[in-house]
Design a protein around this nucleic acid. Structure first.
Length: 171
DNA sequence: ACGATGATGAAC
DNA sequence: TTCATCATCGTA
């Protein structure tokens, strides 16, 4: 299981390395799991694409908290987005999980893994029923691009902070 | 191309 | 208390 230490470092670095890791969900003795194939980084208090750029609020306070905790929120009144908090406490940053195996799109991922508001602010751990594991997959090729759905973010909208696994190998 | 759908944050 | 906005998705 990935420890807090994995997330306590620069977000772009953690984001790239999150590709190929496995998202595991356990709820009502049902277990789901899949390899993370696409992520986006939201970094620091000035990133206008990040919810944290408006400062610390009830919703976003978890982004300012300890690394390795889940930030889950509702978008467009319908879909949940699943993020994992990174970097040191008080520095707001997180990684959005956009695709897992064949499940492409943050809303679809949360639906597939039954992730909702009850997961928000929990630590990534077996106990919380939602965690991440390293199973020895080595990602060999990564595509990098702009983040999706953040056209309002001025100069931050074109930051190439989305990462997608193109090629990988089981060790 | 567009509407669904409701929490959130900021303005009033 | 109101109001615009929104890290999306399914249908057309």
């Amino acid at each position: 299981m990935l420890s807090k230490k994995f997330f306590d470092r620069p977000t772009l670095m953690a984001a790239r390395e999150l590709l190929g890791k496995f998202l595991v969900r356990e709820v009502n003795s049902e277990r789901m799991e899949g390899m993370i194939t696409e992520v986006e980084a939201y970094v620091g208090p000035n990133d206008k694409a990040s919810h944290a750029s408006r400062g610390r609020t009830e919703r976003t306070k978890v982004m300012f908290g300890k690394p390795g905790h889940w930030y889950v929120y509702l978008v467009y009144g319908m879909h949940y987005c699943v993020n994992i908090v990174t970097e040191k406490e008080h520095y707001p940053a997180a990684i959005l999980i956009r695709s897992v195996d064949g499940v492409t799109g943050p809303g679809r991922v949360s639906k597939q893994f039954k992730i909702d508001k009850t997961c928000d602010a929990n630590a990534s751990s077996r106990k919380s029923g939602l965690w991440i594991e390293d199973r020895g997959v080595r990602v060999q090729r990564i595509e990098r691009g702009k983040r999706i759905g953040v056209d309002y973010a001025r100069k931050w909208k074109d930051k190439p902070w989305r990462f997608r696994a193109i090629e990988w190998k089981q060790r």
